[in-house]
Design a protein around this nucleic acid. Sequence first.
DNA 1: TTGTATGCGTTATCAT
DNA 2: ATGATAACGCATACAA
Lengths: 335, 335
Amino acid sequence: MGRGPTSKDVARLAGVSQSTVSYVMSGKRSISAETLRRVEEAMAALNYQPHAGARALAGSRTNTIAIVMPFASAYDAGQLMAFVEEFVLAARVHDYDVLLVTAEEGIEGLRRITGGRQCDAAVVMQVTAQDQRADLARTLDFPVIFIGVPEDTTGLACVDFDFEAAGRLLVEELADLGNTRLSVLGWGADSVDRDYNYIGRFARGVTGAAEAHRLPVDWHLAPAADGFAAVLDAGLHPDGGRTGIIMTAGLSGGMRALALRGLVPGRDADVVALCTEAEAEEQVVPLTAVSTQPRDVSRMVAERLFALIDAGRPAQEGVDIVTATLVRRASTGRA
Amino acid sequence: MGRGPTSKDVARLAGVSQSTVSYVMSGKRSISAETLRRVEEAMAALNYQPHAGARALAGSRTNTIAIVMPFASAYDAGQLMAFVEEFVLAARVHDYDVLLVTAEEGIEGLRRITGGRQCDAAVVMQVTAQDQRADLARTLDFPVIFIGVPEDTTGLACVDFDFEAAGRLLVEELADLGNTRLSVLGWGADSVDRDYNYIGRFARGVTGAAEAHRLPVDWHLAPAADGFAAVLDAGLHPDGGRTGIIMTAGLSGGMRALALRGLVPGRDADVVALCTEAEAEEQVVPLTAVSTQPRDVSRMVAERLFALIDAGRPAQEGVDIVTATLVRRASTGRA
DNA sequence: TTGTATGCGTTATCAT
DNA sequence: ATGATAACGCATACAA
């Protein structure tokens, strides 16, 4: 593997000193038009690419951002991909590359990456209420942005979707449609155990709005939703009431449970969901839904991160919330 | 942002020279038990992490692999994620990190990453028949593995799923079930235009097997599959014949088209698919299908790549094929 | 078995 | 406006 041209080679070809080449790249001092031209020509002629390692060593910036990803998680793959794509594109605009770290490496992964100066900042996804990585970040003096909201956000920069509003919007939609009780097919015990904060916030949004509208709610955990099936079998609209359905996790299972009983969303019951737009639209009956917007989250994270990096400040404390909006589709009567 | 401890600091604390610390890490010369212990203690005490940039500069290895990903593509997000996860895990086993590059950067992205010595090797996904990156790789003297098979594989290392066998298996399954003609809902013009080789290989597999069994085939491009809908409306089994259905792209659209007409896979027609296992299983009627195995591909790529890296040889020419297998589910009569 | 010294390719501080 | 030169932190050839 050939060693590749260095800035010294460029300098020689352009007939200038090596430091001049460096200054041409950084733009940190004024260069005469003539010199600039010769250096740029030489760089092009040699197909010169600065050595990233040498840069990181001398300049103590890597132009790399690490993103700690929860692969085998409750997250939808499409969402994750959308988030990552958007983030990588935003990073490239600022001339940054993206290093992938699995959440499986846990706190050690963060330590390794930051300690080894492989990146200038990190994004940590899928944050739990009691997240050890939050504690580490506080001691780190290193820009980290969290996606999700740990219980104690002191000294942390967080971004998240407004799950509480999402819960509220879905309940209000069903209430407006005249439903008198709610059945929720939601996250299973495994997710709750791992203490994903957003599940609690969503539940709080649902509960709050349901109480305000005096609607009783029964919860069922996906995917082992025997209870949910029982509700369907017992009849959705007993005693002249009307049961509205909210689905979060276990969407395909829930839709299948309906289909197997010949129940059509929008005709036999109002069904709303918290899911991706793609999921909402690819159902046999497209779903009225609040969709998390991974690209919006991604853009907000990138914006905030590069503001930090460019300013050189430590991560500014605070939680940024991405707005939730409901889109009506055929699964609710009045679409 | 503090500078962090260096190997010099470790050396001082352990009462040895800096080079000894380095040799402890690399294991490239024998160290007395006593020295080893003191150095390791010092490293632990200081929470020492070697500076990645300095390492790359001095050792000319980055311990990083770039993976060039096709985000907004015909690829399924779940497949991509599975591939990436598996690869990152494999990479960590060999003490490598993974850098993400978008295919949107095209050939320049590859050039930038390899030229800047940000990685020791690269994996290029979603390769087209006439892929410029293949030409670049041939001139690069740098380990690159392609996922997908360009037309000219001279000097390239490629790994891919056996799409031709996939097509054959699906046709044979339908033939064995007594179908006398085939209807294929497949990739749309956009994918074909971009010349994804695997589409052609799949089609070849279908065509070859269909000819061998003397089955007529009609093709419909997803998602604008008006022709497919017309076939359904015209009646699937005219003239005492029997039409078997193969779905590749546009699966959800195809299933919806069936559902809207009250057609149930496995009852009214045999339906098979080339899709992910998750997709096959989450349908109302689970699908008999050949599934690409992203994790198998990933493992094969990783295995081959690290063999190259460890051996220090240039990428060994040749195409590795990941076996295709069919799994029977309820969408074909005899499940 | 261990220490000394050099170089990797940049950035940035002195000079001029 | 430009050139020398000293770090940056590690790997490794050379000495002992």
